[in-house]
Amino acid sequence: MKRLNKHSAIVDACYEIGATGWFLVVLLVAIPRSLRYLRETIRQIWFVGAKSLIIIMISGLFVGMVLSLQLYYTLSIFGGTSALGTVVALSLYRELGPVVTALLFAGRAGTSITAEIGLMRATDQLSAMELMAVDPIAFVATPRFLAGLISMPLLVAVFNMMGLFGGHLVGVNWLGIDNGTFWSNMTSNVNVWTDVINGEWKAFVFGAAISLIAVFQGYNAPPTSEGVANATTRTVVWASIVILALDFVMTAFLM
């Protein structure tokens, strides 16, 4: 019996992965149709992107500050504190910026997308749209997917900027590292293409994964309060796992 349940869970997971993949195809096919709802896409960029700015900025600031403190301690063991700016920047651009922003984005925007679409289904709003000859995939799902795709790289850029500011605040203003050393080491050792742009690629892929999972879970949530609650939870769980797994794969390829 136990074995059967385990198999059924594996089959369910495989089914979910397959269904999510198919939903991605449906969304991509619907992009040309959703272009007529450009205003809705812009509205969603405001909701999922602009409204996530505060949490992203505050988190970025503190991550940069903590990073600076921890790395200063580690670098001081080897007498290399002058490299603090470089190490903070590389850590942020290559890894922490995209990953932490993606995890925050999944919690802040992913859950709200799932809950909103799930409730729309539960209250027949999606059916109402269909009957008013408005395609809910083009009007509801695709604009939210595109909004996530567009917002994530921008949010990562803001996170990185705030992280650097936080790192500078602690490293230069508090711990007394020379301002010129901090910036000049950073600018000479950080490569725009291999570090900054690769980080932005990660952000783009994470944004696609999070919004796909969030929209899929909301669109397929059972029309009950428990169904919507479970779908919201699944969005965070699946998105977090997928972000970390994709991060490993992309880091291996982009190194």
Binding site: D124, S127, A128, E130
Partner: peptide, 15 residues
């Protein structure tokens, strides 16, 4: 569907 009006049991207004 553009030529059909549908009144839902629960109204289904866009909230």
């Amino acid at each position: 569907r553009e030529r059909i009006g549908f009144l839902f049991q629960n109204s289904a207004l866009l909230t």
